[in-house]
Amino acid sequence: MGRYLGRKFFIYSLTFIFAVTINWLIPRFMPGDPIMVLISRFAGLPEATKVIHSYLTKAFQLDLPIWRQYLNFWKALLRGDLGISIYLYPKPVMEAIAEAIPYTLVVLLPAILVSWILGNGIGAIAARRRRLDSTLLPLFYILTATPYLWLGILLAWGLGVVLRAFPIAGAYGFSLQPELSLRFILDFLHHWILPFLSLCLVMLGGWAIGMRNMIIYELEANYSRYLESLGASQRLIRRYAFRNAVLPQVTGLALQLGTIVAGQVTTEVVFSYPGIGYLLLQGILNQDYFLIQGCFLFIVIGVLLANFFVDLAYVFIDPRVRYAYSGGR
């Protein structure tokens, strides 16, 4: 078990190093000299000369040898220094990201959780009933094929504009300040529902399809057939199949994370929801490279952490992994 997690940790560390390296490499070696673009963009801002001298030279240090530049980049990073945002000048990128992260998580995590649980449940039911299966399955396929952002737009238009049931932009009303009052919380939830729904529904389709296929596969496994030969009820057979089918769905969670993150980013853009995705959009529209890089790094870190948690969970729920790496007990 320790070995298993150790191995995973090793891969994730490499991944992190790889991501940071890309982050360092790309602005330096892309065509079009992005660093000059960056410097010229800073030039227009107040107190720019000071910034350019104090920060940009330090950040890029183009006069130093390459390996020194790389090393210093790491040093700055480990101090939590991701540069200064142009768009939110003079806010440090780190600060901007720290403010955005809660908004992203508050939509993302419940959406993943709810869709995973509901999707697995519905998929399991579909695997049981032919009729239901043949009507639900096409629906699930359409759902997974829907771009998150388009479902978001449709929901915003249908529920937000036509029915006027929900607000379609921002995380809370303009007149409010974040505080722990009932009024704020209700307003927050009101804004939260549509982004949550569009994320949740698309994911739901994928989980349901996965679960349905896995259950059908498990029901054809030898152990299911043998249980049947010994007269076990369908209830017991299904219970076993369900449990074993859930295991790959947990791994699926890790595998799907990339697409889910993409969905989150675009959904935030649709609803102007002030999370990382929205921040990223601002960075892109304003050619704010420090901001883009910071968002990239944090997305990677988030995904790495999530992967690690999934691995950890997997060790606890699948005895095969637990024993395969502990060499007996």
Binding site: L14, F18, M30, G32
Partner: peptide, 23 residues
């Protein structure tokens, strides 16, 4: 090893960082 590293990094994030710098 290389494949596993790339699998973990979300494709969109990677795309963004590359595409953003293309003039």
């Amino acid at each position: 090893m290389f494949t596993n590293i790339l699998i973990v990094i979300p494709t969109l994030a990677l795309l963004i960082i590359i595409a953003a710098y293309l003039p």
